[in-house]
Nucleic acid binder design. Structure first.
Lengths: 205, 205
DNA sequence: CCGTTAACATACCGACCAGTATGTATGTTC
DNA sequence: GAACATACATACTGGTCGGTATGTTAACGG
């Protein structure tokens, strides 16, 4: 039989992308390897040459696709030249993922976290680590803002950070269930108002 | 063979409860009918006597167990003798479900909503209807609070309601992924602070 | 040119799963 | 007490799934 083009990196990459799609639409446990193979034209032998099992493929999707892309969103929070509240609001207004074309699919990270937490420790640890780093990034940015006089001093940065991440993921979750861009807009507007309420009062000179 | 006790109502009820447990732990699609039958001692013939298929069993769990119990939480928001912000804070401090003994299992409604939205219209419609009613209950309570001078007039009740429901479910989602009561506490404290910030300023006489 | 290995391809397996076919015991009605 | 419906029980089916066993082909080092 005609062998396909032999390019291991490319094969691996297309498997990761197809697996991401399948997992994003179906969840990890409902994701079918046969579907992924059908999507790519890769055969089962090739798949199991690159990954020892389904779990490892799932972990690779998280480690190499979902998490790196998610992190680019809040990386900017570390920029000390910016007002952290402005940055938070900008982040909220951006398109979340290039993946997430459709609000009906929700947030890939939240989807997986809700599905796999309590089921598989490997997934849970990866996703929780991501969410924890996200919370920390916000927390540190708010602390910096407090020192710079941009953020109110009567708020607890750790508490606000956890609340904001929760509210953000919750907004995408609600919108997914509602299947509605409008619900997402409404929730995110609420989040934006909240973020603005964290600003330190301008000292009117 | 020795027939079991013939009590159709009881059989149906125990199926619903076992199905709820299985779905709560595994999600609907991963829930195994054989597991449910094993949990109850009910046989497959009995199950399919009471429900035409797995989907109908799942819908019944939502309609007869999950939604009714969820609604008891915010039913109180309609009480006009109470300050709606006090009520919201109290609701946030209550134990969420008698089901939800364990923060690691998350919120049954959110779990199902995230799993089944976009997969099955019957589930999605039921869960979205619930969440929509919840948002409306908060919205109306806030409007009433505004008229009564208990809630600030510079907020949009609809926006705040969506934001709060999202933040609430998001808090349970984060805590589930973190597997941590502490994360839940932190998020809910943030939500509580937010709720307090909605109070109308006391007119100092 | 030969041996070895990486990179696949094909065929198959046992487990599980939703659903069904068929049988049977029990209570109710006339 | 016969007819009938309800409330089950048992055994089985077709399909899907993750995973494996066993090839085969191409590239490459010596």
């Amino acid at each position: 039989m005609a062998q396909h083009a032999r390019n291991p990196d490319q094969t691996r990459e297309s498997l990761l992308l197809a697996a991401f799609e399948e997992i994003y639409h179906q969840g990890f446990r409902q994701a079918s390897l046969d579907n992924i193979l059908r999507r790519t034209g890769v055969t089962k032998g090739a798949l199991y040459h690159h990954f020892p099992n389904k779990m490892a493929l799932g972990y690779a999707v998280v480690d190499e696709i979902i998490v790196p892309h998610g992190e680019t969103r809040w990386r900017r929070l570390g920029d000390e030249s910016l007002n952290p509240i402005d940055t938070l609001i900008e982040i909220g207004e951006e398109e979340p993922f290039p993946f997430a074309r459709d609000v009906k699919l929700g947030c890939p990270i939240n989807n997986l976290a809700q599905e796999m937490a309590g089921i598989d420790a490997g997934f849970q640890e990866r996703l929780n680590r991501f969410l924890d780093r996200w919370r920390n990034a916000i927390e540190f940015a708010l602390q910096r803002g407090q020192r710079a006089g941009q953020v109110r001093h009567d708020i607890d940065p750790r508490e606000v950070a956890a609340f904001m991440v929760g509210a953000f993921e919750g907004a995408y979750g609600l919108a997914k269930c509602a299947g509605s861009e409008e619900v997402l807009e409404t929730c995110l507007n609420g989040l934006k108002s909240y973020a603005n309420s964290l600003r330190a009062m301008e000292a009117t000179p």
